[in-house]
Simulated scan of single mutants.
Amino acid sequence: MPVLITPSADLYSAWVEAHSEWGPGAHEDGFGLLPSDDVDSVAGFESWVARLTAASVEGGDGRCSYRWIVEGDRVLGAIALRHGTSDFVQRVGHIGYGIRPSARRRGVATWALGEIIVEAGSAGMSRVLAVCAAENLGSVKTIEHHGGVLESIQDTELGPARRYWIRVGEPGA
């Protein structure tokens, strides 16, 4: 059974294994990984985890609660809850997640999204915006399972994206 945990430098080897599964250049949403982050060295990884931890306690629109999806000693993916209404949140959504390829199609994303919606409610949010690539049918099903209502499909720099609003505390959430 998976659990959501705060990022931990203790999971360096497990995270590297998950990260390598995505392959070079792939976007791993939910991890908060920037091109400038050095995750190849233990020291760089520890610094990155410290940045994620600090983002979870910042105030205002800059706050982002990062959670890793872990099962046993494996990192299955990550999910992020972005707080506030900044331009960035309006563009990419309150929630972003990514599941490593070998853990997909097992309900992990659906479970994690349900958990982070509960966390959003605890943070006082009444609804959250989830954005996914228009052709990502797995994410479409996951978001709609939790009551996501399609607001629009918009062209973005990465291609067409679906924008869904999910009411926190609604059936299916």
Rank of each mutant, 00 (worst) to 15 (best):
A120L: 04
G23V: 01
R82M: 10
W15G: 02
D155F: 01
S20W: 10
H83F: 11
H146I: 08
E151C: 06
E46K: 14
A50W: 02
V49K: 03
G60L: 08
W68V: 00
A80P: 05
E17C: 12
G25I: 01
A130T: 04
H146Y: 01
P160W: 11
R163K: 12
A43M: 10
S139Q: 06
L33T: 13
S102K: 11
G148L: 03
G30T: 00
L11T: 07
G77A: 00
G62Y: 08
R74A: 15
G96T: 02
F45M: 09
R100Y: 01
T156I: 13
G98C: 00
K141Q: 12
E157C: 05
T6C: 07
A50D: 12
T6H: 12
K141W: 02
L150S: 02
G60Y: 05
G98Q: 00
C132Y: 01
V57A: 05
D73V: 07
R163M: 09
Q90T: 09
A54I: 08
V118K: 13
L158E: 15
R91E: 13
G138T: 05
R74I: 08
V16W: 09
R105Y: 06
G32H: 06
I166Q: 01
I116M: 02
Q90G: 14
Y97N: 08
E115K: 12
F31L: 05
S86C: 08
G138W: 06
V118R: 15
A134L: 05
R67D: 07
P160V: 08
G172Y: 07
S122Y: 08
S8E: 13
E135D: 15
